[in-house]
């Protein structure tokens, strides 16, 4: 079974699968991030024996910019600890949907929203909701790698510092643990002080993943995370993403149908501002219930 470095971040060492592998990677066990107390649901799920409850629930979610409606009336429950792929042609509203889940659209001029999004049963738009906390719980990986203009080590620590998650003494261990987790450690351990912009695109994206994981998110939002990368990097990142579940909930926008089939447990198909179909990935691709889905996944529209 894969290493559960991420489980450490949840402070949920009770997971039966988590224990032995933590012992295997001593550095990770030494880093006690434990920012968010693990919910019982999660602990049960790490056990692998219970069906996952929903991590993200949308209720009548309607999104738009100005007078234009981009996405209409979406009601879904996105299960915890799985990879959910969001597919659909350009302009179908899937990226807008994704960026609403961590409220990145709030800043966009003219953005309008009706309906609600619940994260772990709580509205993310409530008046008491702190954006900083919300975004700590929902990490994001972008279409192109976006390292910060600071050293490799500082990139990994950027969120850790901003949220004051760990003491200075623990930083080196965090850097190593996170870089090992994304398989970047061996490539960069000798040059942690160097600029990240000298890394390859794939390595930069892995660094961004390490940076996002370092703050211990529950949900990871990925906006076409491999579309700008070479095939080998794509393979490496896809393999990593598979290892992040079930400790994390992954929601991935992708234009690559083959990728959606390879990595996701279930798939949402968006078309012309509607959520057309949401089903287990195999079923959506092999026996789509809607005619639009069938036409899209067989390449006849899109």
């Amino acid at each position: 079974m894969a290493r559960y470095g991420v489980a450490v971040a949840f402070g949920a060492p009770s997971g039966a699968d988590g224990q032995p592998s933590l012992a295997g990677t001593g550095e990770q066990a030494a880093v006690s991030l434990a920012p968010v107390p693990a919910s019982d649901d999660l602990a049960l799920h790490l056990d692998g024996s219970r069906p996952s409850p929903a991590a993200v629930v949308t209720k009548g979610l309607t999104l738009g910019f100005g007078k234009r409606t981009v996405l209409e009336d979406v009601d879904v429950s996105i299960p915890r600890g799985r990879i959910t792929a969001l597919i659909g042609p350009t302009g179908s509203g899937k990226s807008t949907f994704l960026r609403t889940l961590n409220r990145m659209n709030d800043r966009v001029a003219g953005f309008t929203r009706r309906g609600d999004v619940e994260l772990d049963g709580e509205s993310i738009f409530g008046s008491h909701v702190d954006l900083v906390t919300l975004r700590r719980r929902t990490g994001m990986l972008f279409q192109r790698p976006n390292p910060f203009p600071m050293s490799i080590a500082d990139n990994v620590l950027a969120g850790v510092r901003a949220h004051r998650i760990a003491k200075k003494a623990a930083w080196p261990a965090i850097v190593e643990a996170r870089l090992r987790e994304v398989r970047l450690w061996d490539a960069v351990s000798e040059r942690l002080g160097d600029s990240p912009f000298r890394l390859s695109g794939g390595q930069q994206q892995l660094l961004c993943l390490a940076r996002a994981l370092a703050v211990g998110p529950d949900v990871l939002l990925l906006d076409e995370p491999t579309s700008a990368l070479d095939p080998l990097s794509v393979e490496a990142i896809e393999a990593l993403l598979r290892e992040l579940v079930p400790a994390l909930t992954l929601i991935v926008v992708t234009h690559n149908l083959a990728q959606a089939r390879r990595i996701s447990d279930q798939t949402m198909f968006f078309f012309e501002g509607r959520l057309v179909e949401f089903a287990p990935t195999d079923r959506l691709f092999e026996e789509p219930a809607q005619p639009e889905t069938a036409r899209y996944v067989t390449g006849r529209i899109g």
Partner: peptide, 10 residues
């Protein structure tokens, strides 16, 4: 990168 920083909760 600014978006990335916001998404990280800065």
């Amino acid at each position: 990168p600014k978006e990335g920083a916001r998404a990280l909760g800065m």
